[in-house]
Design a protein around this nucleic acid. Structure first.
Lengths: 341, 341
DNA sequence: CTGTTAGCGCATTCAC
DNA sequence: GTGAATGCGCTAACAG
């Protein structure tokens, strides 16, 4: 049978309460007693039953998620994932509060963070805008002991406890490899379409992509980066204008959102002029575009995984428990028309 | 506050025991009382606290895993994943028994299944060899009420409750797309290297791959399939012989294991003759080969995910609970040198 | 500093 | 058919 606190107590010759104090590193135990208990624990190979502990504690973790009120499919997916997490809130002993902030707005985010922290939740997760005022507020909050996790896009500096998102440099390199090899040695221009260079995930993808193209595909030359603000209409206009002005574009990397506009613009291009296209996030639009052959590959991050991971990490940090980094790594999914789920 | 059994009891005007009988569909409750309880449950939106229930029950699920004693990295990874699952056995209330069987041996597998079933575990997971005698035994076991899950490779017919593995047809198609596009329009032969056509995962990958190549890359022609029995030495000899006999091979798809041998053979090929290569399973060998440029892409299935999923499903089936199919889908990971974890 | 005791939400005897 | 009482493994008052 698995040893319980009772076994530890009798083995160490102390009471349940004392065992509990030692296990939870609470004060008020003599070094000698503590040692006896620790020894009993390791001798019997005791591991505490977390479920029973939570049952007894009846603790709930109030968590705050700050999400940009950006209306694209990815953010909608993120919200959906949060709703699902809320549905499981009872079992997981969490209470999620969702806060909206304008997209790409550092000042608004900083203010929202401050407000959230004032309510002293057990943890805060937020999609970072990588700007000094945000970093500053984040540092303050972190100092005050509230665990902080960045979601999807990270914050420079060490002002957060964890980042729940993909390796965006790897994503950029992967996009470059796929796009370069799919282009099959053709020479020409490569267009890059971002949302905003203010968010770190976009910047990292872009830099890594550019570097990889330059390094490995010398016949391809990058055009200046276009910023579509993750807005379908803006994106559509940008792409349409781009292709109207020249005919040497062989490939396009869309590293942000708002790809509904991209697909609309691509669809109007004569088939012969359509570039090799790699984009991000497997939305319904992207799925159709892949099937139709308008898009060649989609890199995806699973919003559900990211939310669940953020929650696990925040809870662990709140309890002062270690995080298994390997288990919390968010993968880059690659989808072709052939492996759509 | 979340309603508990106490709330249900007082609301329905009955005792705790009666509520419990109704919740667990045990007999000995009048229709009238049952109705009152059911109503209280739905009115209060009661959901039972699984953790507390398990604590009270003290139930453990004895699970048996039957794994081929095949010494390749993937199977080693699978065993490792099982060890990790065992480490969490206490918390998850499971007790895993591991049974070894010779690889690709239908008779041995059938016998092992029979033995395992005789001990009446709460569930059995096994890597299927798709042969009639296995199907037959599986059907018997399934009839007897023991939940059955196939792992990594599936069984034809409906003689199992669930399959915890990737969509191998999608994997084959994906391999074809990557390989065809990476080959960049070059014309020539494509070699296919399998483990054994006796296991369904290999057959499915192979068929889907062949179909996709024929459909989409008319300049590529398939060579007869080679069977390496997932053995590095056999694989090395086969590949060496293959390339010694001809020089029109532009690509190679290795859909089985034993890729250590493949890499050895590739390494000895003059750089100019090296084909585009897509293989399966991200082992240490494959990681190095990707980095070195000997292999172009690796399709991977996460053994850890598969084991965890199998366990979740077996527990759910044992309790007669539904399985969220979507959540149990095992993804095909695609790795290039650029997104190695 | 240490021990006693009463739950957490649920399942399960054993009476009635 | 139904209910009261007890305990799963752990935590948290409250006493000493």
């Amino acid at each position: 049978m698995k040893p319980t606190v009772h076994d530890i107590a009798s083995r160490a010759g102390v009471s349940l309460a004392t065992v509990d104090r030692v296990l939870n590193r609470r004060p008020g135990v003599s070094a000698r007693t503590r040692e006896k208990v620790d020894q009993a624990v390791s001798e019997l190979g005791f591991v505490r039953d977390v479920a029973a502990a939570n049952l007894a504690k009846g603790r709930v973790y109030p968590l705050t998620f700050i999400i940009p009120s950006n209306d694209n499919s990815f953010m909608r997916g993120l919200r959906l994932a949060l709703e699902e997490a809320r549905a499981r809130a009872g079992v997981e002993r969490i209470a999620i509060q969702l806060v909206d902030v304008p997209a790409f707005d550092a000042a608004a985010l900083a203010a929202a963070l401050k407000d959230a922290a004032a309510e002293e939740p057990a943890g805060i997760a937020f999609v970072a805008v990588d700007a000094p005022d945000v970093t500053e507020v984040a540092a303050e909050i972190s100092q005050s002991g509230i665990p902080l996790v960045t979601l999807v896009s990270d914050l420079s500096g060490a002002a957060r406890d964890h980042y729940a998102g993909i390796d965006n440099a790897a994503a950029g390199r992967t996009a470059a490899s796929l796009l370069g090899r799919f282009a099959g040695g053709r020479a020409g221009k490569v267009a890059v379409l971002a949302g905003s260079m203010l968010v770190r995930d976009h910047r990292e993808r872009c830099d890594a992509f550019a570097a990889a193209i330059a390094r490995e595909f010398s016949s391809l030359a990058l055009l200046p980066v276009l910023e579509g603000r993750d807005d379908p209409d803006v994106v559509e206009r940008l792409v349409a204008d781009l292709f109207a002005g020249r005919d040497d574009i062989v490939a396009l990397y869309s590293l942000g959102a708002g790809n509904r506009g991209l697909v609309r613009a691509l669809r109007r291009l004569p088939a012969g002029r359509r570039p090799v296209v790699v984009a991000h996030e497997l939305t319904e639009t992207m799925r159709e575009a892949l099937t139709a052959g308008l898009i060649d590959a989609v890199l995806n991050q699973d919003a559900g995984h990211e939310v669940r991971s953020a929650i696990r990490v925040l809870k662990a940090k709140a309890d002062g428990l270690p995080v298994v980094a390997d288990q919390e790594r968010i993968r880059i999914d690659i989808f072709l028309k052939d492996n759509l789920p």
